[in-house]
Amino acid sequence: MKEITIKSILKEVLQKEYRNKITFLTGAGISAASGIPTYRGSDGIWVKGTKFHKPEEFGTFEYFLKNPEDVWQFTMFRKKMFLEAKPNVNHELLVSIEKQLGDQFHLITQNIDNLHRRAGSERIFEIHGNNREMKCSNGCKEIIPIPDSISPKEIDEDLLKEEIEQLKCKTCGSWMRPNLLWFDEYYDEKTHKKHSALKVAKNTGVLFILGTSGATNLPMEIARTVLKYGNYVVDVNLENNHFTELLENKKNKLIIRGKSEDILPEILETINECK
């Protein structure tokens, strides 16, 4: 039986005329080297006054409707953290791979930190939204940038009165909300590019999963779609995860336990050789 390796997969996919996209699915592990803590982990717990909030509690639309100012304060605290972070070698290697592949490359990310874009990635789907934009919590359709005049916050720094006014919908007067996917919400096309991401998956020859455990349903659906059409999934993570279970009895899979920054150079080198 032929051994499946990164090199053998890429050589096969790059020779294909159809379903030959090379797609990368990234999560929080990609940004860890930039110093950004994970949202779900213990370092995602937020202290407000004397209250300790777990992400699953305050990262919901239900919580936002009751405590919009608190959620916006935390959002602007996270934005400050993102702005102070810098793209790392993972982001830069993905940009180099995109330059080599052109339209054959796609990047699907669960990260909202904007580091992929700041590094220079262009063919990107932000399926959990982003920290740059906001939309009306009452359903008015426009998605707009968060005003630059609202300053990023320290963890204990409150919003100013004039900043709160800028966070109200100009159409209906309701609170605007961050353009993010919360724990009690569903993926859609407008905000989360669900259908676009699945269309990319359908045309993907190999999906590289980098630094994400598959704890939400769209990433799992993306991987299932790639497998459904007989193509490859490569799981690059430090430990076993939800994708491990999905791939367990599949032939077109490669499981690598290690860091993305150790694997991406091999991917880039192989693409350069084949190109």
Rank of each mutant, 00 (worst) to 15 (best):
K99M: 08
P87W: 13
S149H: 11
K161C: 03
K161G: 00
P145C: 02
R78Y: 00
L94D: 08
S151A: 11
K79C: 01
I150N: 05
R123H: 13
S137Y: 08
G102T: 04
L93D: 10
M134I: 11
P145M: 05
I108F: 00
E122N: 02
A85G: 13
I150G: 01
G102I: 03
C140W: 11
E84R: 10
I108M: 03
P152V: 06
Q73F: 02
L160N: 04
E142P: 01
L160C: 02
E163Q: 04
F125L: 15
D103E: 14
K135C: 04
K141D: 05
I97W: 11
L94G: 12
D158P: 15
E162G: 01
E162P: 00
I108D: 02
R118A: 11
E92V: 09
K153L: 13
A85C: 07
M81K: 15
N130M: 09
I150H: 07
G120M: 13
V71A: 08
I143A: 10
S149A: 12
Q100W: 01
N131R: 02
N114Y: 14
F105V: 12
H91I: 08
K86G: 04
E92S: 09
N88E: 05
I146H: 05
D148L: 14
D70R: 09
Q104D: 07
K99N: 10
K79L: 13
F77V: 01
K141T: 03
T75K: 05
I124E: 02
L159C: 13
D70W: 03
L94V: 07
E92K: 15
E133R: 14
I155Q: 09
G139Y: 01
E133C: 14
N88I: 09
N88Y: 04
H106A: 11
D113V: 10
E92G: 02
S96C: 06
W72P: 03
E154Q: 08
E154A: 08
F82D: 02
P87I: 10
